[in-house]
Simulated scan of single mutants.
Amino acid sequence: MKGILLVNLGSPDSPTPKDVKKYLGEFLMDERVIDIPLIARTALVKGIILKTRPKQSAAAYKKIWWKEGSPLIVISERLQKKIQKQTTMPVALAMRYGSLTIKKGLQELVDKGVTEVLLFPLYPQFAMATTETITVLAEELRQQYFPQISIESVPAFYNKPDYIEVLSNSIKNHLKGIDYEHLLFSYHGVPERHIRKSDITNSHCKIDKSCCVTPSKAHEFCYRHQCLEVTRLVAEKLQLKENSYSTSFQSRLGFDPWLLPYTDRTIERLGKKGIKNMAIVTPAFVSDCLETLEEIAMEGQEIFHEMGGENFTTIPCLNDDQEFVDLLSGWINAWADKKLETV
């Protein structure tokens, strides 16, 4: 019997410093998130970050918390329920971090008689700290607790024509009737070293102006290339004019070089440049969360207004939009019919 496990990032159980600290501890101690030696990672996370950040992050979570709970969890649950209505296979939901664990998700499927699992990381682009950490953990859990099942994973879908169509339609629909001068594509940032570590050629990724547009096998696992490609494909689909859009990266941590340009500084630059009306979309996320609802919609807007900007339009993530539901359901049913390519 076949079953589906949708996996998103995760969330604290509540917007309290205690629960946020627990969540951040699990998240930041992941060797694929902060990829430094364990001793140094422990000293950094437990010795420094967890002593100050939980209180700040809890305050941010409180700003965006819904009555039903964490927006990311609530939206993911809505997505899972809608997909379940469009397939006969059991569909479970899990999070990489937090109490809604991947182990619980696999157990839920196994309890329903599932022996073949389609692991579906809800990330359009591949990254060490997203897709890879999910697939690696799922395989470890399979070997330790569920040796009787098999797991196939959905690869990054950033350049799939039907995904680009759904994303483009969402952007177009949310910008209908809105007069904007610049559309910013903001993606979650990662350290530059993650790009080099993911380079299967060990030579292609230079993180310059040429490597991401030069054909290479490295692009299969290059987060930067995949982000830039989403921007290019959507701009092409929407026939955006040159210089009316750009790409940036948000949510950096620490002092190591992260992907450039930074979103906050880009918003600041656009405001200083005299842009009065801008829109921003966050295609690295499929579900609205702290990074989109607070960091972009609140902090980003504040920066823009401080720099003289006037209208700041935030385009929601695909969330549980019906077109997105139909897209994922179609892929899932195609897998059941052996028509979906997995890795």
Rank of each mutant, 00 (worst) to 15 (best):
E242I: 01
S248D: 08
E310Q: 15
D326G: 04
S246W: 09
L327Y: 10
G254S: 07
P316D: 04
E306N: 12
C317V: 04
T247Y: 11
I275C: 12
A284Y: 02
A284Q: 12
K237V: 10
Q322S: 11
C317P: 00
E242D: 11
E242L: 09
G274T: 15
F285S: 09
E242R: 06
A235S: 15
K272Q: 15
L260E: 15
D288E: 10
S251K: 03
G271N: 04
P257E: 09
M298Y: 00
E268K: 15
L259S: 11
S244A: 11
I267W: 00
E268M: 11
I296T: 02
D326C: 03
E299K: 12
V286Y: 00
E236K: 13
W258R: 09
M298C: 03
L233A: 03
V234M: 03
E310W: 13
E242K: 10
A284M: 02
Y245A: 07
G308L: 04
S244Y: 07
K241S: 08
V281C: 02
D326K: 05
N277I: 14
K272G: 14
R252L: 02
Q250N: 03
E299V: 06
G274M: 12
L290D: 01
E291A: 06
G254C: 04
T266N: 01
I303T: 11
R269K: 15
M278P: 08
E242H: 00
I275N: 15
C317M: 06
L233N: 10
K241Q: 10
L328P: 06
L293S: 02
F304V: 10
V234T: 07
F312R: 12
Q322H: 07
F285Q: 01
Q239Y: 05
L327A: 04
D321L: 05
A297Y: 13
F312M: 13
I332H: 08
G271S: 05
E236Q: 13
